[in-house]
Amino acid sequence: MSFDLLVLNPGSTSTKAAVYRDERLLKTRSMVHTNQDLAPYPALNDQLDYRVGMVRSWLALEGYDLSQLSAVVGRGGIIPNIVSGGYLVDSALADCLLHHTVFDHASNLGGLMAREFAQPLNIPAYIYDAVTSDELLPEARVTGFKEVTRTSFCHVLNARATGHKYAQAMGRRYEEMNLVVAHLGGGISVSAHSHGRIIDSVSDDAGPFSPDRGGSLNMLYVLDLCYSGKYTKAEMLKKLRGEGGMSALLGTHDCQEVERRIAAGDEWAALVYQAQALQIAKGVGTMLACFTGLIDAVILTGGLANSKLLTGKVMEYLHSLCRVVVIPGENEMEALALGGLRILRGEEDVHQFHPVCPITQGS
């Protein structure tokens, strides 16, 4: 039996849409939203009808008959108390996406958009592998601060999709394997995958610096900066995300530009790139310690994994410790489609969202 899926991925300045027939991409479009376009919609949820209307118009221009769809899959939002995999967008999840997300983010519209398309067709709407999916082991949650409990925050969608892709290439199931996946992009996260569960992770503000993230460093240094009187909280946040990492050190987050400088003999650029590779390897090493069994592979993925220079440097640090494979790209649309397809084929169970109060220390 063949399945058609509509995949929706809303971002802050664009909405990506695609139609898949099983694993095959039929149509895709990225619709850009300027500040002027979004100005009439002061709240994020106000954009729902606007974005849905744009996708409907595109599909109409393509002459695609919506009645052919078997399901609609939207990007998962910033949702509390969920695990990885697919969730049915029912009334409880829709209410959460509208009123109770962890914070505002364009991805919160993904499930709502999917439901708008699915309900009139009487077909299921799903989200898949939301970024806040959290399956950390209890011991991975504990920190040295009584007031702080760790939660998982990593590139869940691409990390798990890449794990599935690697397992399939090996003739095995993702749920049978122990993998460490390093997602290398504008932000870098590293996650430990044990038999289908992300048991620990290093988020993009707690591990390697990246093209525009500051990464982790000794907390005393950060405290000194915070209380130096030189920076506001907003400015410190930009040092963590947006203006840190290679952007701060080299004035650019374009790795191709960095590599051009290295080829031209720029020793500082070469040192920063080497440091970037070392920090990625150290982040992977942290996750290697999470397993009590053998590791099947370390996977380097994400947009930066297209850089053979960078991945080659990372592999120099790790090759004697474990098997390292490179599967570049982010492939978010494909990941959403394949997740929905596994649900439709009965290869995965779909979760139902149950809003509960989060467990805190001492409760």
Results as ranks from 00 to 15, higher is better:
Glu116Trp: 07
Glu116His: 15
Phe117Ser: 14
Phe117His: 12
Ala118Gly: 11
Ala118His: 09
Gln119Ile: 12
Gln119Trp: 09
Pro120Gly: 08
Leu121Arg: 11
Ile123Pro: 11
Ile123Ala: 06
Ile123Arg: 12
Ala125Asn: 10
Ile127Gly: 09
Ile127Val: 15
Tyr128Ala: 13
Asp129His: 08
Ala130Leu: 01
Val131Ala: 08
Val131Gly: 03
Thr132Ala: 10
Thr132Lys: 04
Thr132Cys: 12
Asp134Ser: 06
Leu136His: 05
Leu136Asp: 07
Pro138Cys: 03
Pro138Gly: 06
Pro138Asn: 06
Glu139Gly: 12
Glu139Arg: 14
Ala140Asn: 14
Ala140Asp: 09
Ala140Met: 11
Arg141Phe: 02
Thr143Lys: 03
Thr143Cys: 02
Gly144Ser: 04
Phe145Asn: 12
Phe145Trp: 12
Phe145Ser: 14
Glu147Phe: 00
Val148Asp: 02
Thr149Asp: 11
Thr151Met: 08
Ser152Gly: 14
Phe153Ser: 15
Phe153Asp: 05
Cys154Gln: 09
Leu157Trp: 04
Leu157Pro: 08
Asn158Thr: 08
Ala159Arg: 03
Arg160Pro: 05
Ala161Arg: 07
His164Val: 13
Lys165Glu: 13
Tyr166Leu: 15
Tyr166Asn: 05
Ala167Asp: 02
Ala169Met: 11
Ala169Arg: 15
Ala169Glu: 14
Met170Val: 06
Gly171Gln: 07
Arg172Pro: 02
Tyr174Ala: 10
Tyr174Ser: 10
Tyr174Lys: 10
Met177Val: 00
Met177Gln: 15
Asn178Ser: 11
Leu179Trp: 02
Leu179Phe: 10
Leu179Cys: 07
Val181Lys: 10
Ala182Met: 01
His183Asp: 02
Leu184Ile: 05
Gly186Tyr: 01
Gly187Ser: 01
Ser189Gln: 02
Val190Ser: 04
Ser191Asn: 09
Ser191Glu: 12
Ser191Ile: 05
Ala192Phe: 00
Ala192Pro: 09
Ala192Val: 04
Ala192Glu: 07
Ala192Gln: 08
Ala192Asn: 08
His193Trp: 00
Ser194Gln: 15
His195Phe: 11
His195Ile: 04
Arg197Thr: 14
Ile198Ser: 15
Ile198Gly: 07
Ile199Asn: 11
Ser201Gly: 05
Ser203Asp: 13
Ala206Trp: 00
Gly207Trp: 03
Phe209Thr: 07
Ser210Arg: 07
Asp212Lys: 00
Arg213Met: 09
Gly214Asp: 06
Gly215Leu: 06
Ser216Leu: 10
Asn218Cys: 13
Leu220Pro: 03
Leu220Tyr: 11
Leu220Arg: 15
Val222Arg: 12
Val222Pro: 05
Val222Thr: 12
Asp224Val: 10
Asp224His: 15
Leu225Pro: 01
Cys226Asn: 09
Tyr227Glu: 11
Tyr227Ser: 11
Ser228Thr: 06
Gly229Phe: 06
Lys230Met: 08
Lys230Thr: 10
Ala234His: 10
Ala234Thr: 13
Ala234Val: 07
Glu235Thr: 05
Glu235Tyr: 04
Glu235Asn: 07
Glu235Ala: 09
Leu237Arg: 15
Lys239Leu: 12
Lys239Cys: 01
Gly242Cys: 02
Gly244Phe: 00
Gly244Asp: 00
Gly245Val: 03
Leu250Val: 06
Gly251Trp: 04
Thr252Gln: 04
Thr252Tyr: 08
Thr252His: 06
